[in-house]
């Protein structure tokens, strides 16, 4: 790992000011993705701004609209939260399925979303539950946030502050894990809420995506059988040593059916 200047601001404003100084400045959240990248020198920032000491970035709040999760909230805290378990059990169980218990004790929702790993779980929750990402500059709708492989709508100097999830009528997340890495080969969040039905898929392509045909079928009838005959074309999907694109296409429909079943 290359040397860097370490800074630990106490407020979002201070962190934003440090980012604005420019140069190769990076934010550090749980470090569960970034530290590995720095060891490999895939990332070699000159300055690292640790968000770990900023109290305003942590915690889970419930209000009329839904649940708001601070960017520095650890996966384990979301999984354990009685409020999240009661209002959006699919979100609590998704958080509890990320990595292993040590990763969940460090990793944060803000870090996971900013990283936007194509096989990460939280992007499926944010897109499938129609969440809003709040930054120090603006609010970004889930549909606009994920722009590509490891890419998001975040601009230079922008810090995720929190994420708010509206409470769905029903929702479930089901994934098919890679037996070795335990990451999702395919993960599907299916949700029905006042604003409509959403089906979001992670792990299968270069970036999380929605399946419009499944959403329409489920809006007409919320039942696993409504998905019979609907599949995602394989030509847009990943193919690797773990699963071919055709197999991933097959898994998407199977996982979507299981999610609908689980969210009855």
């Amino acid at each position: 790992m290359h040397p860097f200047n370490y800074r630990n601001p106490k407020s979002v404003a201070e962190a934003a000011a440090a980012l604005a100084e420019g140069g190769d400045v990076r934010l550090l959240a749980g470090g569960q993705s970034l530290i590995a990248a720095m060891k490999l020198r895939l990332s070699a920032p000159t300055d690292l701004i640790d968000l770990g000491g900023i109290g305003e970035l942590t915690g889970i709040r419930v209000d009329g609209a839904g649940i708001t999760v601070g960017a520095m909230t650890r996966h384990a805290e979301v999984a354990r939260s009685k409020e999240v378990q009661a209002k959006i059990p699919a979100l609590a169980s998704l958080a509890g399925s990320i990595g292993d218990r040590m990763v969940r004790n460090m990793g944060t929702i803000g870090g996971s979303l900013a990283h936007n790993d194509p096989v990460a779980d939280y992007p499926a929750a944010v897109l499938g539950l129609n969440a809003t990402v709040h930054t120090n500059k603006r609010n970004i709708a889930a549909d606009d946030f994920f722009t590509g492989m490891f890419e998001t709508a975040l601009q230079t100097g922008e810090i995720i502050v929190s994420v708010s999830f509206p409470v769905p009528r029903r929702a479930a997340y089901v994934k098919f894990r890679n037996p070795a890495s335990r990451y999702a080969i395919v993960g599907v969040m299916a949700a029905a809420s006042a604003s409509g039905v959403r089906v979001a898929v992670t792990g299968a392509a270069s970036c999380v995506f929605r399946v419009g045909a499944m959403e329409q079928a489920l809006a007409a009838k919320w039942s696993p059988d409504a998905l019979a005959g609907i599949s995602v074309p394989a030509d847009q999907l990943n193919s690797d040593m773990h699963a071919s694109a055709e197999y991933r296409a097959h898994l998407i429909t199977v996982m979507a059916r299981r999610a609908v079943e689980a969210a009855k």
Binding site: N8, D50, M102
Partner: peptide
């Protein structure tokens, strides 16, 4: 492994198990 995979480096930080090869010493201030 030094890559956050194997768990051999697990310690407790403020009562929670973490992989100490995936944490900077300065984060434990």
């Amino acid at each position: 492994c030094d890559t956050g995979q194997c768990g051999a480096c697990t310690i407790h930080m403020n009562g929670l198990a973490v992989k100490s090869c995936n944490v900077l010493a300065v984060q434990a201030e």
